[in-house]
Design a protein around this nucleic acid. Sequence first.
DNA 1: GCATAATACTTGACATATCAACTATTGATG
DNA 2: CATCAATAGTTGATATGTCAAGTATTATGC
Lengths: 146, 146
Amino acid sequence: MAADSPPHTKAAVIAIMRAADVLRRRGTALLEPYGITVQQFNVLRILRGARPEGLCTLTIAARMIEQTPGITRLIDRLVAKHLVARERSEEDRRQVWCRITPQGLRLLARLDRPVADLDRAVVAGLPRADQERLAELLAAVHREPA
Amino acid sequence: MAADSPPHTKAAVIAIMRAADVLRRRGTALLEPYGITVQQFNVLRILRGARPEGLCTLTIAARMIEQTPGITRLIDRLVAKHLVARERSEEDRRQVWCRITPQGLRLLARLDRPVADLDRAVVAGLPRADQERLAELLAAVHREPA
DNA sequence: GCATAATACTTGACATATCAACTATTGATG
DNA sequence: CATCAATAGTTGATATGTCAAGTATTATGC
């Protein structure tokens, strides 16, 4: 009836989506009391790692774990919360540089512990070697069309 | 500075999210010409597997790979496209039974091949044993808070 | 058997995501 | 140096997702 992929392939694909959904929902639940989303949190972490210069908008987009066409508005929301500051580059006036604010850094500092705890909890069932193996295997999932 | 999780844990978590994003975007791109989303496709597949009786709304929600609070409107859209039909149960008038239409079945039939190809392409870098191992490892990602 | 609780959705308000078109600026070419 | 293309982002329209509250119906406990 159906031109299915082999069971192990289908199982792998479904397992990836399920696991990601668990992560996304638990991450969302964790961050919700702090008033930010998972994507906003990821931007903040990227900008913390890019201090003190910061990064221009599209570079942030390129570094995101999930591709996000709506990067401008995502950052708009962080700016509205005073967690990120933006200013237009003088060298290339098309670019906009984004930096994390002290307030943004303080928020991240409060979040580091619970986020790390969540990461650990989510893969707690796996010993270290298996976690490494998992990352290796997932690296084979290719980004672009074959 | 940061109360980070161990590198292998963080790497595993990020790898899951990245891989899932690849799947989601490629799935979206594949289905877009057919006018349905990944979640709508998943509902159709669930309903194909539940013929001929169909399923009531919340049972569909429970079987979804990604949890979706907005199941009613998701199905609204499938009904609007005549891919799913709904009717209120006579036995328990709170329930609404959903069934896939012949048109929905024809759409799925056209999609089976390309979707299977995508599944295969996405994990093409992995031999069968590794795909199985991947699914096993991901099964350890737990749904509920520890 | 009547009130209360639980179930199964539904709906409205609002946040977020996505796509396409648009502006501003810079680089490349003749 | 004027023009055309490319880059970097922004904006508007629209689709979709999410949460809270509401409605209809059925089950439960006195």
